Simulated scan of single mutants.
Amino acid sequence: MGSVLDTRSLNRATLARQLLLGRAALSAEDAVAHLLGLQAQNVKPPYFQLHARLVGFRPAALAELMESRKVVRMVTMRSTIHTHTAHDALTLRPLVQAARDREVNAFRKGLAGVDPQRLGELARAFVEAEPRTMGEIREELLGHWPDADPQSLSVAARCRLPLVQVTPRGVWGRSGQVRLTTLQQWIGRPAAGEAAPQYQVDDVVLRYLGAFGPASVKDMQTWAGLTRLRDAFERLRPRLAVFRDENGVELFDLPDAPRPDAGTPAPPRFLPEFDNLLLSHADRTRVIAPELKGRTWTGNQSHRTLLVDGFVAGLWLWEEGTLTIELFGKVSKAEKEHIVAEGERMIAEMGEQSEMGEQSETAETGGRPSVRFGSIHG
C-alpha cells in the first residue's frame, strides 16, 4: 500500500509537471516534447498553452517551428488534433493505431465492399502527390467506390493514414484551409513502424507520468484514448513510486519527479479551451472541484478556464480588446489583483494579429489593457 496523496498534493504535483507552478525557461520545442503534445482542436490554443507555461514566450516561436516542420498538427490522442514534435508524431501515431482501427470499424456498414488496404494505398498516393482537402480525398475515393458512404470513406482515410495539416494552417498571423498529406511526406522521415514496440509503449508511460503524474492506469488510458495499458504499468512497477489517492485508487509516478508541498503557492493562469491539463485524467478533481463539473463545457465545446490557487475558478473571454473574466466564486482582493496582472500580461504579450486572420486583439486599449469581471455565458 502506497502512501496517500490528498487532492491538493496531487494538484501541486500535476501543476509542477505541467509547468504551471512557475513559468519554465524552456524552448517552445522542448516544452511541446515535455508535455507530449498540445491539444489543438482549435488553432489558437497551443500558443496560449505555451504562454501560460514558458518564460518570455511569443507566438512567433511556435509559428517558426510549424513552418520549419519541427512540429506538426495531426490526429493522435483521443482521436483529436494535437500539436506534436516531429519525433513524437512518429512515435505516438503508431501507438494509437489500434484505436483508430476500432474507429473505422464503427463505420463498417458504410464501407461495404471497400478494400481497406487498397483505400490506404490510393489515399496515400493522392495526398503525397500534393496536399489535399478532406473533401478532395473523399471525392477521389468515391471515384473508386461510388456506392460507399462518403463520411465513412473520410473516416477510413483519416484513421488509416498518419495525416498532418500542412502550413499555413496553424501558423500564428496567417490563415489557411485544412490541407493534408502524410506525416512521412511532410517531415521527410520514415514512420517508426506500423505498431509501437513494447519499449515504445513503456517509454510513453514514463513520459506521461513525467508530464501528468502521479496518475492511475485509467488516467493514462483517458489521456491516450486507449485501453489495456495495465501490462505496461506492471512491467514498469519496479521502477515506479506507488501512491494512493483519498479514494484508494493506485497512483504511479516517477520516483524523482517533483511532488511539491500541498501549500506551495500556485499563481493564476489563463488556459485556453481544450487544455490537456483538464482532459488527461479519468479523475479530474485534482484540478476541477466536483461541484463545478460541467461548468467548463457547452455541448462538445470546451471553454477557456482560469486557474486560481491551482484549481479551475472561472472562465474568460477575450474579444474586441477586452478580457472578461467570470469567476465561479469569491476570491480575495490580493487574488483578484494577481488575476488582473496576469490578464494584463497575457494581453500585452499575446495581443497581436491572430493566426486566423481575424480582427487584431491588440494590447493598445487606450492605456492599461482592459480587464473586467462579469458574466460570459449568461
Rank of each mutant, 00 (worst) to 15 (best):
P290V: 05
Q301I: 15
T322Q: 14
K293T: 14
L254P: 01
G329L: 09
H281W: 13
A262D: 06
F328M: 08
W318L: 13
W316N: 01
R295L: 15
L278K: 00
A289V: 08
L279V: 01
A341V: 04
G294E: 05
L277R: 01
G310A: 11
R295G: 08
G263K: 05
R284K: 12
I288Q: 03
L292C: 04
L254M: 10
R284N: 11
K333E: 15
H338C: 11
E335N: 11
E319H: 12
H281G: 03
N276V: 06
H338A: 15
G263I: 02
A262R: 06
T296A: 15
A334D: 14
T296P: 02
G299K: 05
I339T: 01
E337Q: 14
V340E: 08
K293V: 13
V331M: 08
R259P: 02
L307H: 00
T305D: 04
K336I: 10
F274A: 01
F311C: 08
R259T: 05
W297H: 12
L279P: 01
H281V: 05
P265T: 03
L306I: 01
P265V: 04
P290C: 09
K330S: 13
T264Y: 07
A313R: 02
H281C: 05
P290R: 08
F274K: 00
E326C: 09
D256A: 15
D253G: 02
V340N: 03
L317R: 14
